[in-house]
Each structure stands twice: as C-alpha cells, then as structure tokens.
Design a binder for these strands. Structure first.
Lengths: 234, 234
DNA sequence: CAATGTGAATATATTCACAGCT
DNA sequence: AGCTGTGAATATATTCACATTG
C-alpha cells in the first residue's frame, strides 16, 4: 500500500491566488514602466488594493522569488508570473459569434495587447460571414476545426446568443479547444477535462444593484426610479 | 458594555452566495419559459452545474421559500430573488468611454434585456461626442453629472483606457454614482462606501492559459505554438 | 533592520447528512 | 416518501504575527 502519493500536479496554485496573478502582473507592468526595479509586498498590496500578507502568500506559491529585507525584483517576478501562467507561449484564440459582443471583443485591443492573438472569428449567419471585423474576416463556423487545428488554438471565446452556445461549445470541443471563455448567458455542458470560465456581464450589474439597494435601505434614502416591477420571468 | 449588538445589516448575504443569485435567476427564467411551475434544488443544481446543498443554502439566505417534499415555486422564487437583488426597481446605468468596448456594451443587448437601461454614453474625445451608439447619442463627459442627477443613475460602467479610468471614476463618484463596474485594466481608488466590481477580460484568458499549460504538462504533450518569450514588461 | 516566507489563528465557503415538514 | 432547511464537518481563503534571512 502506498500512502501519500503526492498528487503529481501538486504544484497547483489555489484558485483564489491564481485569479489574482493577472492583477499583480498588470501592476508590475505599470511599476516597471515607471522605472522601478524593486517592489515590496507592501507596495504591491497598496497598488492592488489587497492585504500585504495575501500578496506574499500568493507569490509564495510560485516559489521564493523575493529577497528578505529588500522585496521583489520587478522584472524577475514579472517573468516568473508570466511563466507560471504560461504567458511565455503564444495562445491564439478563436471567437465564436460575430454579433455585437463578438465583434467588440475582436476589435477590443485588450486581448491582443496582452498577447492573445485572434486566430479567427466565426459565425453561422450568412449575413455576417465574409464581413471584416477587427482586421479579421468572419468565417463560417464550419471552418472552425480547420483553423483550430492549423493554428494550434486551444482557447475559445464564446459570444453567441444563449440558444446557440451549447452547440458552438460542442464544436469548439470537437475541434480540439481545451478552454472556453463563455460570455453567453447559459451553463455549458462540456466533457471532463475541458475548462470553462464564465463572464456574466448583466449578472455583474445585478450584483451592483443589490449593493445599491442595500445602500438605499441603510441610508433610509429614497428608492431609485419608479418601483416598476418587471414581469416575473424576465 | 454592550455585547453582541447584532449588526443591523445582518441580513447581508455572503458574497459567494450573492454572486450565484444571477445564475439561479437566469435558470429560473429558462425553466419558467418551459412552463415548469415547480423545481427542486436537485434540478436547479443540475441546471446550474453546482451542488444541490449549495443551492439550498444559497436560497436559505433569502428566507424559507421552498416547500418540503415538493420544491420551489418557480414564479415565487424568481420574484424573491429579484426583490433581494433590487431588480424590482429600475436601475439606469451610464457608460463612460465610447471606445470599442464602451460602444459594444451600449449596443450589447444583454444589459437592457435584463432590465438595465442605458441612460447615457459619455466620452471626452470630440471625435466621438455626438455619434450615435446603440440608439444613444454619445455625450461629453462634462454632461455626466447632469444626466446622473436628472435620471437618478446610481450605477456606472467604466470602459475607458486605463489611463483615463481614475479620473472618470472620480467624476462618476462626484456625480453621485454609488457603484462602478470597471472594465479598465487598473485598480480604482474610490471613497469608502462606493462599490466597485472589476471585470478583467484579458485576465480571464490568462487564467485559461494557465489551465492549458497545466494540461500540456500533465499530458506530456507538445507545447503550443512557438515558445516566443515576450518582453518581460509586456 | 527591514521585508520575506510561513505556521497558526481566524474567517469564509462548501459539502455532508439528517431532522423536520408537507 | 420526498425535499427543504440547517447544524456539524470539512475544505478553502485570509489574516496575523514572527522567526528567519539577506
């Protein structure tokens, strides 16, 4: 009997810490742009708006890359986070759905700016196929597999209407994509091993709405515009 | 000495549970569209892709709205979640930044579809001011305060470049906005009491990149396209 | 001596498992 | 009989506080 076989993927970073690494990375970029070579966890924490102990613990999952009494070397730490996140590789993405949001994401500089080139934009609507969006021609979804394989794409961005999302996800998975960023307002069912992250834009507003309502209650203030109850199934 | 003054805002829902309410709400909407009147926590859990006990505990923070042995009445539960989130009120939003993302969000049906009307789109760029986006004319940021006050706006969506974000946030706060949804890749500093939620689109991809790298390591498979190390301060 | 890295303490979140209703 | 609502158990995350080290 073998005890304590330490899961070979033991190196896994806790989810909560992982989610903050992109933030630290961005801050390190800004700090570097100002010519600063060293940062302390206190400084990072201040800039990131989090607790300094949290910064240190988060970074400790990557290894011991700081210097006691001094801090972290900006360039070195940047490199280590990038390496941990896999950002020293190219990760071309495909965008499925060339509606408002899909087009916006294709045009949106933020992806390419941070190293995610758009290998293709896909749709099934003949009216959209052929149009040029963000410098990329919209292709028919039938070409997805070919592009994913030839360009070695492993990340897909899903920006279709909810009704089309599951089928589009199926196609992404069949084409060989291993991770999906889902903007469609629906829950995807994917084979085990495929990673999905969901972004719910309207949901974010609903959460803010809760905070605003709490504030309104707390301050005993007047409620916002007309308490027009919406239909229950809206 | 007074012990255990139970925080008057004790009614606060745990953050993690709160973040799932929009998901449940959406699922309830789908279920209702299919004409189903009752759902069990098992069914909801299945549809939401989470544990059934979690569903029950989340819903229990709202009150006891289920019926033992039966489940939850779809319409009633929908109403209760909406009420808790403050969605029985109108919450007009303003969008600051009429670049690619700002325009897309204004056009994007998802906000209005879920009851968040766009009261205005603002920018400082004279080339953009006056253009019509998503049926709304882009106004100059100087008009922000007037619109926020006249339309009683308390939620702002920030979609400017990072460099302009802090100043735009200041203006939102000064105008009277209490909650900000921040798409700009930067950390905002706001007065105590103002809520900020950040959406980091590229950061989401970076996290997926980590998963993909882990998969590549686990499967011992070939790395993705060219291991071109990017500049350290990228 | 200043700041990291980390055990220990605390807080939050998830899940189990079942008493209690319908 | 079946499903909710919830204490208790567990897991994860955050924060404290300090020994350790350059």
């Amino acid at each position: 009997m073998v005890f304590f076989v330490p899961d070979p993927s033991r190196r896994r970073i806790p989810e909560a810490a992982l989610a903050r690494l992109p933030l630290y990375l961005r801050i390190l970029g800004e700090v570097a742009d100002e010519g600063t070579a060293q940062v302390s966890s206190d400084q990072l924490a201040e800039l990131a708006g989090v607790n300094a102990a949290k910064v240190r613990k988060d970074l400790s999952y990557l290894g011991s890359y700081g210097t006691r009494g001094v801090g972290y070397e900006v360039a070195f730490l940047t490199y280590q986070i990038q390496r941990e996140l896999g950002l020293n590789h190219d990760w071309p993405v495909v965008i499925v759905g060339a509606g408002n949001l899909g087009q916006a994401l294709a045009n949106y500089g933020g992806f390419t700016e941070r190293g995610f080139s758009v290998a293709g934009v896909f749709d099934t609507d003949p009216a959209k196929v052929g149009a040029v969006v963000g410098g990329v021609r919209v292709r028919h979804l039938d070409d997805l597999s070919q592009v994913v394989q030839s360009r070695n794409v492993s990340i897909g961005v899903l920006a279709t209407p909810a009704a089309a999302a599951q089928e589009a996800a199926n196609r992404l998975v069949r084409a060989g994509v291993g991770s999906i960023l889902n903007f469609a307002p629906c829950v995807l069912s994917v084979p085990r091993g495929v990673s999905v992250r969901k972004v719910d834009l309207a949901g974010e507003l609903q959460i803010l709405s809760y905070y605003e309502q709490q504030r309104a209650i707390a301050t005993g203030g007047t409620q916002p515009t007309g308490a027009t109850a919406r239909g229950v199934s809206a």
